[in-house]
Design a protein around this nucleic acid. Structure first.
Lengths: 236, 236
DNA sequence: TATTGTCATCTGTGATCACATATGTCAAAG
DNA sequence: CTTTGACATATGTGATCACAGATGACAATA
């Protein structure tokens, strides 16, 4: 290929053809993250294939990836289901999240550019506004909360860390969303916006230790609420 | 089971039945961990399938899982290769490892039973003995080093954390092993056994903070050596 | 010699088939 | 009414086939 023409041919060629496996993977992933599939729910390759209008093949690859990430579970019977979240597993994941996401916040405080901090700050203000309402929109607040968190994590400029955190959110996603439906005021009660404010202030000051502390507190406060009010089974 | 002859052999075969995908997955995984495939090396589904004596099908699933874990990489051309380790990626993975494995060590100091500490101590003594030799066996020392580390991580009793650490070792595995061949005395020069001794002492004392510090120092010392002496490319 | 165009081959992706096992149904025996 | 057995169906796993795009070899051309 000649390098002379960066024009149309190049662009068209760069149109990365996305595989069906990738599409199915992202579809199932979104279902799980949005909490639209309940923990313990089982499904089959052929059933999912018919639902998305493909052969079972792409679903197989998607399920393989998702089970490798812990977002799905393959029982000894070879059945496929959304993993059940126990109190013990949730507690462990909370410890890991506080550590990893705190680490990301610490490096974000060091490495973030001004525009990245501004973006995170924007999400923070939107979130605080939504939280302050008399009857806050839980789904919208939750989305803004996620936007804020990942704006910070991206600002750390650590792609491998970001990928691990992504996998952790995929595992706790169902519980977070299901719990929100059970108790809509969660985000206000745990005073998430106050933790967020401390986080943003630390980012602006370039104070890594404080950023880490604020983020860890945010995660632990939300987790404590879920462990206290949620109905997570206690099977070890 | 309603079959006429259940027989012992039948039962054993049925119980211990693992899928071919799983076998192939573990095979490739071991190749990568042992550093028997070089970073950048490419391979094909059909080629690997013929090598292991199956159809391409199980290889496809194994490769899918491994690429989800970052142990393999799928290029835009859809070619499959062992990821190239850059200085930047190695530095980031080292930060993450120091944090995660340090966390595991801290909880191991709290949660480990006496027999678990004894097992780790045994690996430590074997490792120290091998390191003290005039001409230490690098491969054996590396294996003992891994045994010691994972004995500690298992003692934390945090299965999710253990799985994440496993994935991290899978990503840094090739470099560790390749570097060892280039400079056999690495383990002695970085004085790994001294870090290990501090770690074991902290475990016995139940001192989580010291255990974390010792383990983080061990990882950072080895990483510094590789960054200083290795020939990792500097492509961001 | 260097470049380009053509053609045979290779490779990943997706669909379909074959098979062993797991699950569900239902009638007969206790 | 409960339990057990056989039988029909459904499901995951593995192999094979079909196909579009990528790769590589090689001759023709400037």
């Amino acid at each position: 290929m000649s390098h002379a023409e960066p024009g149309l041919a190049e662009k068209v060629a760069r149109v990365s053809r996305v595989t069906l496996s990738e599409v199915v993977y992202r579809d199932i992933r979104e279902l799980i993250l949005a909490g639209q599939v309940a923990p313990g729910e089982k499904f089959t390759l052929r059933g999912m294939a018919e639902a998305v209008g493909t052969s079972p093949m792409p679903v197989r690859e998607a399920v393989g990836r998702l089970s490798a990430e812990g977002a799905l579970e393959i029982l000894p019977n070879r059945a496929i289901r959304v993993p059940i979240m126990t109190r013990e597993r949730f507690a462990e994941l909370t410890i890991i999240r506080a550590e990893m996401e705190g680490l990301a916040a610490e490096y974000a405080a060091r490495n973030a550019g001004a525009e990245e901090i501004a973006a995170a700050c924007g999400f923070h203000e939107e979130f605080a506004a939504e939280s302050a309402k008399a009857d806050p929109d839980g789904a919208a607040a939750l989305r803004l909360n996620k936007d804020l968190h990942f704006a910070v994590y991206r600002a750390a400029h650590m792609p491998n860390l970001l990928q691990i955190i992504d996998g952790l959110w995929l595992q706790v996603g169902p519980v977070i969303n299901l719990d929100l439906r059970a108790s809509g005021r969660r985000l206000k009660e745990v005073e998430a916006h106050k933790h967020h404010a401390r986080l943003i202030a630390a980012l602006k000051a370039g104070d890594g230790a404080s950023a880490r502390q604020a983020l860890a507190d945010d995660i632990r406060a939300a987790a404590s609420f879920i462990l206290a009010t949620g109905d997570l089974p206690s099977a070890p």
